[in-house]
Design a protein around this nucleic acid. Structure first.
Ligand SMILES: [Mn+2]
Ligand SMILES: [Mn+2]
Ligand SMILES: [Mn+2]
Ligand SMILES: [Mn+2]
Lengths: 236, 236
DNA sequence: CCAGAAAGTTAGGTCATACTAACTTATTTT
DNA sequence: AAAATAAGTTAGTATGACCTAACTTTCTGG
């Protein structure tokens, strides 16, 4: 076996490479293999381009790649992904807490800064705002040494009718959605109770605080919940 | 004249393009033309590569380029250069003031962040630290609308023996030099008096506060001074 | 189990940015 | 003013990252 250019140590990754690794990590959280098409879709890139990039990343020892069968992160790839994820989330938290940046725009800004900020800067940011454990959307921040809370939560769309939970996390990419969630006051930390769910992708009615409201299932799918132990938490 | 692709508006500049524009601005402060070799040297790039890049920037309407005779910034190029310079210096000031970043390392960090930070972020940073007018090395920060103080100062190497001045600015790129200057307490705002200068590039003796010290001319050339009006300020 | 659909790859471009080597133009020196 | 030197450009190559079009492999459902 003619060993390809293995990881020689810490050759610096390009911004696109870091974004690929993050995307691959996000798909199947490092467990299952990530499909070319899904990577392509997440990054808004043609599948053909993904094939090419994936080969390069595999040559660098960051991915295990089997032609026609998707990719998985290697240990080294996972470390790199988590390093970028930490940067991204610390930056989001810092922008939000230290600079009053609105929560619907931190993601876009962090998406570029994550590739430019040094570890030292990121650590200083984290220290300055008191070593936050989650970003403004509730996503857990990996630690310096590369561990993360990988708890999987139910989405609001999966929560059983009648049960209650606390919003732990919302998806962070769509500014318009974030503004709408804030308007409805569906925010990390808020307690919600599912009142009803209409069939055939119908609206979900819930109470947040003292208000009652009704949202569509695709919005609900973007809100993750930690169930409060009362009336069972499984899918309804 | 077959008009090349003129500036169509605000096509986003790449990081290398922004660095070229900054370098060209720094050479001859927008007045004289910048020589290919000098651009190459500042950016640590081969002269041949500069020829290529300069042509592309000229095609974008950012430079006036005459083959074999160097380049000048156009109005649009100058604006772009000052936009990047503002980002760079605000970032340096912010890192230093808000995050306690040491002054010998802010430049390196800002050199990357300047290409990733949005105008909004830079403006928030500036606001947070009270709209600074100079960066940690004393360089003036361009305003949002693109004006800068372009006062030219004498260097400590040019200051007449016997005359005094205030350190306004030191060059910012070499961390080791910056640490040494801090050690000698040659810092922006400090008053210095030139006591003597030995011929043939000999050491320059000066007093800073109550201490007397002696530095080489190449270090002195990196320290800019606002003369205090007493015993004439011209070259000695 | 096999045809059609879906998924994925290769082939062949493009663009930006850099390099070295070879050449051309400009400047300086004699 | 010619020769020598310095400065600058072109030619040809490489790499990374993207694209579309055409092809191949895998999956699926009848
Ligand atoms: Mn984000
Ligand atoms: Mn990114
Ligand atoms: Mn600087
Ligand atoms: Mn830069």
């Amino acid at each position: 076996m003619s060993a390809a250019r293995e990881e020689t140590g810490t050759e610096t990754l390009t911004a696109p490479a870091e974004d690929y690794l993050k995307a691959i990590y996000a798909i199947g959280k490092g467990s299952g293999p990530a499909a070319t098409n899904e990577i392509a879709q997440r990054l808004a890139i043609a599948p053909a381009s993904v094939s090419g990039m994936v080969r390069r990343l595999a040559d660098q020892g960051l991915l295990a790649y089997e032609r026609y069968h998707g990719v998985k992160l290697t240990e080294s790839g996972r470390r790199a992904a988590l390093r970028t994820l930490r940067r991204h989330r610390v930056i989001e938290a810092y922008l939000s807490q230290a600079l009053g940046y609105p929560w619907d725009r931190v993601h876009h800004e962090a998406e570029r800064l994550e590739h430019a900020a040094s570890d030292e800067l990121v650590d200083r940011m984290a220290a300055t705002i008191g070593e936050p454990e989650v970003d403004p959307h509730g996503a857990p921040i990996p630690t310096r040494d590369g561990s993360v809370d990988e708890t999987e939560y139910l989405s609001l769309a999966q929560l059983a009718v009648g049960s209650a939970g606390v919003v732990v996390r919302v998806s962070d990419e769509d500014p318009e959605m974030l503004r709408y969630l804030a308007e409805l006051s569906i925010l990390p930390g808020k307690k919600v109770t599912v009142k009803s769910r209409a069939p055939y992708d119908g609206p979900i009615t819930l109470s947040v605080g003292r208000q009652e409201l009704s949202i569509g299932p695709s919005l609900a799918a973007n809100v993750l919940i930690a169930p409060l132990a009362d009336r069972g938490g499984g899918r309804g």
